[in-house]
């Protein structure tokens, strides 16, 4: 498909553009739901989360983010939602017998709407780790990524005259230091577990098959370190959020409470990215249609052109 689209731009912009563009890896339509070879992600387990918000503190430190005040107080960091100052937040659902927590952050979709949307490739999905990264040097601040994200993750610095988009990049910058996502490093219970997506999916399946009330070993921090803790298994909603959602995500969630009660939208399996790119690949297939139209238009405009 990328070839077809490349041809479209060749006609629109000339060959030089296409030469550069062809170096970019294809997106959804070419990759489908295949995981990137070394896909990294997080498994968040609401049943294990104690709402301590250590992940939020660690995230702010690791990403050098400012504190955010809400309401009247200006003493401590208490964001109420993801924002340009908060890339990761623990939210509380208070409607059940006991409160339940949910961690909101970028889910690092397999077919990310934001990456497909971005006109200047400021948002890109790493071909190896699948991490969706942001480059402020490319960004023009059009905020189409915000429109295109089904989970409302990318945030914009509204109060800054020289703003940028902020979103979780899975602590991409720590990977080089042999570290990983700060939220998972800090999580005391293993509710946020870092690791290769394949292993995390197996772990999630294992948890769904646990008998509630029994004690089980749960990996902590990073699935590959072998460090575990014993917890009593709670009943799960039999679903991994992020396994199929809009083509799947690399950050997945487990919960004992319905996911839509936790503010996670109920979405279909087929991504909107595949809708859009499927459509444009038909319309602009080898640029045949627009070229033919243009040819026809040239002919009629020349022939009917003397109406002045």
């Amino acid at each position: 498909m990328s070839i077809q689209r490349r041809d479209f731009l060749k006609a629109a912009l000339g060959g030089s553009l296409a030469a550069a563009a062809s170096a970019r890896p294809g997106l959804a339509a070419s990759q489908g739901r295949d995981l990137p070879p070394e896909a990294l992600g997080i498994l968040y387990d609401s049943n294990l989360c104690i709402g301590c918000q250590a992940c939020m503190t660690a995230c702010k430190q690791a990403n050098d983010m400012p504190v955010e005040f809400s309401g009247q107080q200006t003493t401590w960091d208490n964001p109420l939602d993801l924002s340009a100052k908060t890339l990761n937040i623990i939210k509380m659902y208070d409607g059940g017998d006991t409160p339940a927590f949910v961690k909101r952050q970028c889910l690092h979709c397999l077919e990310p709407g934001c990456v497909s949307a971005c006109p200047v490739s400021a948002l890109e999905k790493d071909p190896k780790t699948g991490i969706v990264t942001y480059d402020k040097k490319a960004c023009i601040g059009c905020r189409y990524c915000q429109v295109a994200c089904p989970y409302n993750v990318p945030k914009f610095e509204w109060d800054n005259p020289f703003p940028q988009i902020r979103k979780c990049e899975l602590c991409n910058h720590l990977l080089a230091e042999e570290r990983y996502a700060a939220c998972c490093e800090a999580c005391p219970t293993g509710a946020s577990l870092f690791g290769p997506v394949k292993e995390l999916r197996q772990e999630a399946e294992r948890r769904l098959n646990m008998e509630p009330g029994q004690y089980h070993e749960f990996p902590v921090n990073h699935i590959s370190t072998g460090k575990t803790q014993t917890h009593k298994a709670e009943a799960y909603v039999p679903k991994i959020y992020g396994a199929d959602e809009l083509g799947g995500t690399q950050v997945m969630l487990l919960s004992g409470v319905d996911f839509n009660k936790l503010g996670l939208p109920e979405v279909r399996d087929k991504s909107y990215v595949s809708d859009l790119e499927g459509l444009s690949s038909k319309l602009y297939s080898y640029m045949l249609l627009p070229a033919a139209v243009f040819g026809g238009l040239l002919y009629v405009a020349k022939r009917h052109g003397d109406h002045e």
């Binding site: 731009l9 553009l17 990456v115 497909s116 949307a117 971005c118 200047v120 490739s121 444009s280």
Partner: peptide, 12 residues
């Protein structure tokens, strides 16, 4: 700028 172009973007 061609090297920034995202050929999948409808907005582009």
């Amino acid at each position: 700028l061609p090297w920034h172009a995202n050929i999948h973007s409808a907005l582009l």
